[in-house]
Simulated scan of single mutants.
Amino acid sequence: MADKEVILTVEGLKKLEEELEHLKTVKRKEVAEKIKHALAFGDISENSEYDEAKNEQAQVEEKIAKLERMLRNAKVIDQEDISLDIVNVGSKVKVKDLEFEDEIEYTIVGSAEADPYEAKISNESPVGKALIGKRVGEVVEVQVPDGVIKYEILEINK
């Protein structure tokens, strides 16, 4: 089965590369030290420190493999390719919630970069899907658990 294409901004690519580097250079060494320390206790058959360190090692290696797979399948969105006419991955979109009159700015990113706390929403999320391909002035309806939210697109930026 082919791996899924991972859409990333330049910033997102850099962040994943830095995380991978940290895991390979720092975290691996820390876990190896924990294993070495746990082995110093002797019998590993009932050594909880050893078991914990081996589990952590497996998690780190799994995360490294996942990041390497994501980076291999990464499609980086070039800032120059982002249109100001329609919403796409990489766009910053200012919308107005028509019910509450709130203005919100989202950055549309691939699912690997999504971070709601930084207003980075996935192109695969309900709001992201509704905004993709739309223009300034258009109103989109987004089905959410509480009902339907209506957003008017006010601005599209890079």
Rank of each mutant, 00 (worst) to 15 (best):
D3H: 11
D3N: 12
K4C: 06
E5I: 12
T9D: 06
V10R: 13
V10C: 06
V10I: 14
G12T: 01
G12S: 02
L13C: 04
K15F: 03
L16G: 08
E17V: 05
L20S: 14
L20D: 12
L20H: 13
K24R: 15
K24I: 15
V26K: 14
R28S: 15
K34S: 10
I35S: 10
K36N: 11
K36A: 11
A38Q: 08
A38K: 08
L39F: 06
A40V: 02
A40G: 07
F41E: 14
G42Y: 04
G42L: 02
I44L: 06
I44N: 06
S45N: 08
E46D: 14
N47V: 01
E49V: 02
Y50S: 06
D51R: 12
D51E: 12
D51N: 12
D51S: 09
A53F: 08
A53P: 08
A53G: 09
A53C: 11
K54V: 14
N55V: 07
N55P: 01
N55W: 03
Q57E: 14
Q57P: 00
A58D: 04
A58I: 02
A58H: 03
A58Q: 09
V60I: 15
E61F: 04
K63C: 07
I64W: 03
A65L: 11
A65T: 12
K66C: 03
K66H: 13
L67S: 10
E68N: 10
M70Q: 15
R72L: 10
N73V: 03
K75E: 13
K75H: 10
K75F: 09
V76T: 14
V76A: 04
D78T: 03
D78H: 05
D78M: 05
Q79H: 11
Q79F: 05
Q79D: 15
E80L: 10
E80F: 10
L84A: 05
L84D: 11
I86F: 13
I86T: 14
V87H: 03
N88L: 00
N88Y: 00
G90V: 01
G90C: 02
G90H: 01
K92S: 12
V95P: 01
K96A: 09
K96F: 06
I104P: 00
I104V: 08
E105G: 01
Y106Q: 08
T107E: 10
I108S: 02
V109M: 02
V109L: 04
G110W: 00
G110P: 14
E118Y: 04
E118H: 11
E118I: 04
K120V: 09
I121T: 06
S122F: 03
V127S: 08
G128K: 10
A130I: 11
L131R: 08
I132R: 09
K134W: 01
R135Y: 02
G137W: 00
E138C: 04
E138P: 11
V139P: 11
V139M: 00
V140D: 09
V140Y: 05
E141V: 06
V142D: 05
Q143S: 13
Q143T: 14
P145F: 01
V148E: 04
I149H: 07
K150C: 02
L154T: 07
L154M: 15
L154Y: 01
E155T: 11
I156Q: 03
